[in-house]
Write a protein that binds this DNA or RNA. Structure first.
Length: 691
RNA sequence: UGCGGGGUGGAGCAGUUGGUAGCUCGUCGGGCUCAUAACCCGAAGGUCACUGGUUCGAGUCCAGUCCCCGCUACCA
C-alpha cells in the first residue's frame, strides 16, 4: 500500500482561464489543463479536500473588436465560445469542480470588492495621462487602434505602439497625423485618470517571498523568468482601463472605466470558488483566505502556460498580498509551449489541432489524445506534437503494451475459466517478485505527480503494463494449460491483479479508460491507497466481457490530418490582405531623384547576432558597395550570391549594427510578409538604370 | 543587444544533492503464438555542443565560446 504524505489539509487548484474569443486547441490542453487535471484527480483519489476551478475570461478589447468585425455583440461572442470551451473540457474529462465565467454578477462584485479594498487602503497611485480619444465612438483608443505616419521613416500606416515598416517602437502620441481605425477620423488627446498598483513598492517583499522562499520550489523556467523581471525592476501597473467591456470601476469619478485584466481575470479563480461553494454548501474562504492557524491554510496551485508566469508569480500575488487576507500560491508549475508539425501553434493562421474538431474526427478517443499529450508535455522545454508521433504512441504503446495486456489477460481468463478469478494455489518466487515490483509503482507514480513530473508518472504507469506482458511471456499459461492447470490459475490470478491495479492507477491519466476497465473487470472504482495490492480481485469473482480498450490509428487518419494542416497553410497563403492605401501624389521630378540600378550580389553573409539582417556586397556597375538588408529570414547567403537585384544607389548611407549600409535593395512584400527580389526578368548589364 | 530556457546514441526525451550514461520509439538478430502481425529476450549505436577550470572523480559545479527557442533590438 502506498503511504504518501501530504503537507496540506486542503487544496485550491486553478488552471488558466481561457479567453473566450476562440476555441481551444491541443496547446491549451497540454499547457494548463491536462497537468492540472491529473494532479487534481490524483489528490481526489487520495481523498484530499480539493477544489479545482476554472472559467472563461470574457472581458477586454479583443472581444469587442471581434464582435464588431463579425457584426455581432460581445455577449454573443462570449456565449458562443464559453459554451464551446466548456463542452471541450467536459469531453476531455478535465474535472473542474466548477467551470465559471467572468461575466457573472458574482464575479463583477468580487472584483469590485477587491478594487475597493485596495483603494480604501490607499494602495493605488492615481495618475492622469493624455490618451487619444475617438470623439465619434466616444472611447479611448488602444495603441493598436491608432495609425498614422511614422515619425522615423515617414511611412504611413504605422501603429500606435510600433511602426511595422521600420520597426521603431512608438507611443501613440509620436505618430504624425494619427487616425482612429474605428471612425477613420483623427482622435483627440484627452486627459484620463487611472489607478496604478505600485509593484515597485512590493518589490522587496516579492524578493523575499519569491526569490528566497520559492527558490527550490518553482521550476527553473518559472523561477528564472521571475528573477529576470525582478532584476530589471518593477514598475507600477495600471489596474484600470478606458474600455467598454468589462467590470466597472466602482468609483463615482471613474464612470465608464473598467478594471483591467489584472484585477479581473485572476479574481475569476476566487469568484468561481465562491459560486461553487454556494452551489455545494461549502465555505469558500477556507480555500482562499488565511486561517487563524496557518497550518490550516489551503495549498494554492496555479497551472498555466509560460506566457502567464509573470502574471501569476508577480502581479496576482502582489494583489493578494496587498489585500492581506488571502493565501499566496504555493507553486506555479508553468509549462513551456507545444509546437505542431515543426511550427508554432497559431490561431490566426489556423495552424492548430482544435479540440472540437478532434472530438468529431476521433470520436471516443479522448484518452488517446490525453495520453499522447501527457507523454510530450512541455514540462522543461518546448515540445512538439506530430500526427506521426501521435499514431506511433497510440499504436505502439496504448494499443500494443497497455490495451493488449489487458485484453490478453481477459481473453485467457474467459477461455480457460469462464471469466472467473481462480484462487492462488502457490506463489512462486517469480510471482512474489512481480508483487513486490507492483507494490513500488504507486509510490513512484505518486512521487512524480506531486513533483509535477507527469511525463515520468505516465511512463512509470506504462511500465506496469510492460511488467504484465513480460510476466505472461515468461509464464506461458497457454502452454501450461495442457500440463498444469493449477499453475495457470495462479498465473491468471496474478495477471488479473495487475490489470486491476492498472485500472486504479490509470484514473488520473486516462479517466474514461479507467472506467471501462472497472466495468470490464466488474469491479468498482478504488482510491490510490488500494493501488499496489495483490488481492483486489477475490477468488470466484466474475469478470465482464473482454473489449478492446484502444484501436490503432490508421495511416489514412494521419494523412487526412496532415492534409488538413497543409490546406490551412495554403488557404492562409491565398488570403488577400487589405492593400495599403495609395500615398499622395508626387511630381515627376521627385521620382527622377531616385537613382535605381541593376546590380549584382557578389557576396552575402549573415550579420552576427541578428535574425533578419544580411550584409551584401553589391556590384552596382559604378562601384562595389556594402548594403545591409533585412532579408535573412527568407534567403540564405549561399542562394543569392550572383543574383541580379534592383538597388537604390543614391540613398543616404546609414549605419546598421555597426555596418555602413550604402543603398537599398528593392523588395516586394506579399500578404504574409514574405519578401522577394524585384529585378529585371532577363540578365542585363550591371549598372543599367531602372526608371 | 539584453534577459530567460535549452543543446545527451537515427528520432523524442530522463538524468534529483558530482561517483561505472538511462528510457521510449526506430534498426538488426532471436524466442513465443494467449493477444489488435500484438508480446518477450538480446545486440548495434553516444568524445553527454565546444574550450578551459575546481575535484581523487563532472552530463551534473565555475568561467568563456558557439548554436536553437521565447520576449527584446536590428529591416533605410
Amino acid at each position: 500500500m502506498s503511504n504518501i504524505t501530504f503537507p496540506f489539509k486542503r487544496y485550491t487548484i486553478t488552471s488558466a482561464l481561457p479567453y473566450a474569443n476562440g476555441p481551444l486547441h491541443i496547446g491549451h490542453l497540454a499547457g494548463a489543463y491536462i497537468p492540472g487535471d491529473i494532479y487534481v484527480r490524483f489528490l481526489r483519489l487520495n481523498a484530499k479536500d480539493v477544489v479545482y476551478v476554472c472559467g472563461s475570461d470574457e472581458h477586454g478589447a479583443a472581444i469587442t473588436i471581434k464582435a464588431k468585425k463579425e457584426g455581432t455583440t460581445p455577449q454573443a461572442i462570449i456565449d458562443k465560445y464559453h459554451a464551446q470551451i466548456k463542452e471541450s473540457f467536459e469531453q476531455f474529462g478535465i474535472s473542474f469542480d466548477i467551470y465559471h465565467r467572468t461575466s457573472e454578477k458574482i464575479h463583477h462584485e468580487l472584483s469590485q470588492e477587491f478594487f475597493l479594498n485596495l483603494y480604501e487602503k490607499g494602495e493605488f497611485i492615481e495618475q492622469v495621462t493624455e490618451q487619444y480619444y475617438d470623439e465619434e465612438f466616444h472611447q479611448f483608443l488602444a495603441d493598436r487602434y491608432i495609425t498614422g505616419t511614422c515619425p522615423n521613416c515617414k511611412s504611413e500606416g504605422a501603429y500606435g505602439d510600433q511602426c511595422e515598416k521600420c520597426g521603431t517602437s512608438l507611443n501613440p502620441t509620436d505618430l504624425i497625423n494619427p487616425i482612429s481605425t474605428l471612425s477613420g477620423k483623427p482622435p483627440v488627446l484627452r486627459e484620463t485618470k487611472h489607478w496604478y498598483l505600485p509593484l515597485d513598492k512590493y518589490q522587496p517583499w516579492l524578493e523575499k517571498w519569491l526569490l528566497e522562499g520559492k527558490k527550490d520550489v518553482l521550476k527553473p523556467n518559472v523561477y528564472g523568468q521571475c528573477r529576470s523581471w525582478l532584476k530589471s525592476g518593477l514598475q507600477p501597473r495600471s489596474m484600470t482601463r478606458d474600455l467598454d467591456w468589462g467590470v466597472d470601476v466602482p468609483l463615482e469619478e471613474a464612470k465608464g472605466k473598467k478594471l483591467y485584466v489584472w484585477l479581473d481575470a485572476p479574481i475569476g479563480y476566487i469568484s468561481a470558488t465562491k459560486q461553487w461553494a454556494l452551489d455545494t454548501g461549502n465555505d469558500w474562504e477556507k480555500y482562499w483566505k488565511k486561517q487563524p492557524d496557518a497550518a490550516d491554510d489551503a495549498c494554492l496551485i496555479h497551472f498555466i502556460g509560460k506566457d502567464n508566469i509573470v502574471f501569476h508569480c508577480i502581479t496576482f500575488p502582489s494583489i493578494l498580498h496587498a489585500h492581506g487576507e488571502y493565501i499566496l500560491p504555493e507553486n506555479v508549475p508553468a509549462n513551456e509551449f507545444l509546437n505542431l508539425e515543426g511550427d508554432k501553434l497559431s490561431t490566426s493562421r489556423n495552424h492548430a489541432v482544435w479540440l472540437h474538431e478532434y472530438l468529431n474526427e476521433f470520436p471516443g478517443k479522448q484518452d488517446e489524445l490525453r495520453y499522447v499529450l501527457t507523454s510530450i508535455l512541455p514540462e522543461t522545454s518546448d515540445s512538439e506534437f506530430t500526427w506521426r508521433d501521435f499514431q506511433a504512441r497510440v499504436n505502439n504503446e496504448l494499443v500494443a503494451i497497455f490495451g493488449n495486456f489487458v485484453n490478453r489477460v481477459l481473453v485467457l481468463s474467459h477461455k480457460y475459466f469462464d471469466g472467473k478469478v481462480m484462487p492462488v494455489n502457490h506463489l512462486t518466487d517469480t510471482d512474489r517478485l512481480i508483487f513486490s515490483e507492483l507494490e513500488r509503482y504507486p509510490k513512484h507514480i505518486a512521487g512524480s505527480i506531486t513533483q509535477f513530473r507527469f511525463r515520468e508518472a505516465l511512463a512509470q504507469f506504462m511500465n506496469v503494463a510492460r511488467l504484465g506482458n513480460k510476466y505472461l511471456a515468461d509464464s506461458e499459461p497457454w502452454k501450461l494449460i495442457k500440463t498444469d492447470e493449477e499453475r495457470v490459475k495462479t498465473v491468471l490470478n496474478v495477471s488479473l491483479q495487475l490489470a486491476a491495479n492498472l485500472a486504479i492507477m490509470a484514473q488520473p491519466f486516462l479517466p474514461r479508460t479507467a472506467q471501462r476497465m472497472f466495468d470490464m473487470l466488474n469491479f468498482s472504482a478504488h482510491g490510490w491507497q488500494d493501488a499496489g495490492s495483490n488481492t483486489l480481485l477475490p477468488a470466484g469473482h466474475q469478470l465482464g466481457e473482454a473489449q478492446l480498450l484502444f484501436e490503432k490509428i490508421t495511416d489514412e487518419q494521419v494523412n487526412a490530418q496532415l492534409a488538413k494542416l497543409s490546406q490551412a497553410k495554403e488557404a492562409n497563403a491565398n488570403i488577400t490582405k487589405d492593400v495599403p492605401e495609395a500615398k499622395n501624389n508626387i511630381v515627376f521630378e521627385d521620382f527622377v531623384k531616385m537613382d535605381i540600378r541593376a546590380g549584382k550580389i557578389l557576396a552575402a553573409e549573415k550579420v552576427a547576432k541578428t535574425k533578419k539582417l544580411l550584409k551584401l556586397t553589391i556590384d552596382t556597375g559604378l562601384d562595389e558597395r556594402t548594403v545591409v538588408s533585412g532579408i535573412a529570414e527568407f534567403f540564405s547567403p549561399e542562394e543569392i550570391v550572383g543574383r541580379q537585384v534592383s538597388i537604390l544607389v543614391n540613398l543616404e548611407p546609414r549605419e546598421i549594427k555597426g555596418i555602413l549600409s550604402q543603398g537599398m535593395i528593392l523588395m516586394v512584400e506579399d500578404a504574409d510578409g514574405r519578401l522577394d527580389f524585384v529585378a529585371p526578368q532577363t540578365t542585363v548589364q550591371t549598372g543599367s538604370v531602372i526608371r
